[in-house]
Design a protein around this nucleic acid. Sequence first.
DNA 1: CGCTGCATTGAAATATCTCAATCAATGTGG
DNA 2: CCACATTGATTGAGATATTTCAATGCAGCG
Lengths: 251, 251
Amino acid sequence: MFVRKFLLGRLRHELTEDELERLESAVNRIITIEPRTTLVDRGTRLENSYYLIEGTMLRHLDDKRGERQLVGVNIAGDFVDLHGYAMKRLDHSVQSLDRAKVAEVPHIRIKEMLSGSPHLARLMWFSTLLDAAMHREWIFRLGRLNAEGRIAHLISELIERLRFVGLFDGLNFPIPLLQRDYAEACGITPVHANRSFRTLKERGVLELDSGGKLRILDEAELKSLCDFDGSYLYGQGELQLDNFEDLAVNA
Amino acid sequence: MFVRKFLLGRLRHELTEDELERLESAVNRIITIEPRTTLVDRGTRLENSYYLIEGTMLRHLDDKRGERQLVGVNIAGDFVDLHGYAMKRLDHSVQSLDRAKVAEVPHIRIKEMLSGSPHLARLMWFSTLLDAAMHREWIFRLGRLNAEGRIAHLISELIERLRFVGLFDGLNFPIPLLQRDYAEACGITPVHANRSFRTLKERGVLELDSGGKLRILDEAELKSLCDFDGSYLYGQGELQLDNFEDLAVNA
DNA sequence: CGCTGCATTGAAATATCTCAATCAATGTGG
DNA sequence: CCACATTGATTGAGATATTTCAATGCAGCG
């Protein structure tokens, strides 16, 4: 049941079987996307949202000269454009990084789900709030950290998120971002990303091979390099959902 | 009726009198806050959310050394921490810039509103999605623009948002941000902010006097300096709410 | 009058970018 | 199997943007 990863690690009580059922049956079809393929284009009208079953998706804004700025990375268990349900057009584009598998959920079905299950409705809202919390941390990363810190911080975030859904083995980072992608996420040039990675490697923190194969050698050092504090991810730590279960819309 | 500014300029159909009534009656009390006073501290447990009636609030993250990174600026008509309703603890702090007036809305009342009016519920969700869209543009601003562009972009955004709620006269910018604040928002040092403002003044774009008194002399030039495209604000332009009215949760 | 908070300036240090070249791995067509 | 193109990684050197530090200016205010 591929929807099991939805908000996994973020909730005090996991989704009920009934809710998982509803979610999964809202799916229209499952699509496999080739690497580096655009799934949703900025500005186009949307009738569906997409839940990522497998693989990685990159969300980005483009400037006038076509330069990309990544604004988010999505992994299995994430909705990549749930806000498109309410906004109807995205202000940014979504593209696959690797070969990805997504579940297409028509907005009509989402509508049904929301009215049918207030609890699911709240969880969907919550999931967009998590996006916003991550955005804020990205702002912090770009505003306050240097190149090396930005890379370390990005990787640290992704490690934590991979852990939530059980996709990190402690060594091999399963998201094949290229140096170019790190550069586009961190607001630096690819050349400078390369130099920063070299430094990180020299410090014994990580190793990045061609093709985006990244190994995390010293996670503690990686996090301390950028003073990483993952509480904004609202996992089972300090800042958690807590009483979210109380917040019934129609309780 | 101070809630009239809520989402003003963003919706195809304005809130009904009944909805405005519900919103306003959810308010527990109105608080006046002195300048530079913290309203909500990162991490503390929340029982209320705050709607800004008058003045300006700054949302910020702090690093280990106490350096601030602004992640948002709120003006009249904004909820400053609506997401605190669902998250219970904020991942960032909220502080007044000037003397501000806020309406305190207990979460219990929000809960009632949500169950009582699906339409209001959707609007509240939408308002948090607008925050996220702005966050994304802030990421872009920090990642892709230089100091001058970042300042120009920030001011451009605020001008548009002030327009939505009828608070910009075309010349005098009513948000008394200091150079220090621009620096904290744009990820630059105050010294560099100062130099960037001088350049902007030399170009005849704007003038910033001591105490945050800013005059916009050439708005077109200001926006073209940073290729500003305000569609992410989801106003009455290209990217708009459109069929949002269809999206009834319990339609 | 003398704080105090903010703005402004200069000069040197540092971070990052730009441009241009090279390298290494991979895949393709002949 | 080779020649070649392609893609991403790496390096060097010089240019530019931004920071840092330290000093000065300036206005409101008790």
